[in-house]
Design a protein around this nucleic acid. Sequence first.
DNA 1: AAAGAAATTTAGACAAGACTAAAATATTTT
DNA 2: AAAATATTTTAGTCTTGTCTAAATTTCTTT
Lengths: 219, 219
Amino acid sequence: MLSQAIEDYLKAIYEVETSEGKVSTSALSEKLGVSPASVTSMMKKLSERKLIAHKRYQGVKLTPAGRKIALEIIRHHRLIELYLKEALGVPWDKVHQEAEKWEHVLSEELEDRIDEFLGYPVTDPHGSPIPRRDGTMIVRQCDALVDVEPDTLVKVVEVSDHDPELLRYLGGIGLYPETEMMVVSKQPFKGPIIIELTGKEYTIGRNAAKYILVEKANN
Amino acid sequence: MLSQAIEDYLKAIYEVETSEGKVSTSALSEKLGVSPASVTSMMKKLSERKLIAHKRYQGVKLTPAGRKIALEIIRHHRLIELYLKEALGVPWDKVHQEAEKWEHVLSEELEDRIDEFLGYPVTDPHGSPIPRRDGTMIVRQCDALVDVEPDTLVKVVEVSDHDPELLRYLGGIGLYPETEMMVVSKQPFKGPIIIELTGKEYTIGRNAAKYILVEKANN
DNA sequence: AAAGAAATTTAGACAAGACTAAAATATTTT
DNA sequence: AAAATATTTTAGTCTTGTCTAAATTTCTTT
């Protein structure tokens, strides 16, 4: 049995690995809210257990075994998020927090029941793909909203679940995964992005726009 | 925030207190699967936090603050048990194990949603009363099956949830809370108890019969 | 290429919660 | 009531996962 701390580290490493490519001690320190020294000592432990490969001063990489575990936890997390929304009507800005704790104590059997209840879903409420039981995950090709040229019609693919306030804002304007919208303009000097949605225009800050993934709509 | 260990101790103290009256170090040691020395050291901590009253060599008692917390955890536990059965069809011999872990990470908000989903239930799948949010709990007056005289018609009130195998057996013969049955005879020399249920006779060991609570049926 | 800055690791400490072995106290037996 | 037994507590150790401060290595700047 793995400790919650180990599960959290593996998950964090996976997430940094996919979003930044390289996984540094400081990135993990920041993401997990612990000191860099704590990260280093955990890296040593995970290395010994062959869950990661760690070169001194050079960052870290998941081994296949470590990646498998990370994906199991992420699967728990995303199934739980979707379950809470579908079965109990928990709003999408709150499911993350709840899943963050529950994911570590979910049995495989209950995981299966939830999966079945939901009809073997493929994405969570934020549009993130749910890893399969076998440790594989379908990754969709898409761009951050911040990188899209103006005058493009796009479809929202995924919204990061880590900022509840952003989620409440986006929910308020009706911006969810699968929603189509027009990128109207990008204000200069790192100004916000203007989008059009159901006939109205809204502004989205550059920073927020990094966390909204979209693909070109087939029009 | 209380640690899981503290929550588990308080719950165990509550349960021993209600079932045995006196709470000894060894009873807790046994119940929690830790050494007596570990119990003593935790007792010291809980005492300092004024969650229990501890007299050296004389056992332990919950303070009102400690009891409140114990009942909150038990409320989580029982709501979760019922929820898993009702919403996801988890069989009653498996809900305990799952609830044992989930109870410690359930937010108050999700607790409320589950309570509402279930229609503000009063008992869990084993017939145990669910404590109210305010820390009160309705305790029903009833007898252990082992103490009932033969030739009595009784209604099952509650079955202990701690032995999955017993639960599977009882479920198999259709013995659930609210079920009515006839106590046919008690075999001598600590032999089993014979009951009649839906026309058939079944035997229930003396030990098991201690964990089945019943009341006289109004016939 | 050397100096300064930033990131990482090491060293050592601490808290929680478990353990064993030994000492202290209660309880039971004779 | 003394002896034997059982229970509880104390003392000291261990593991996990955190921390700070100091040392090391890498990166950036000039």
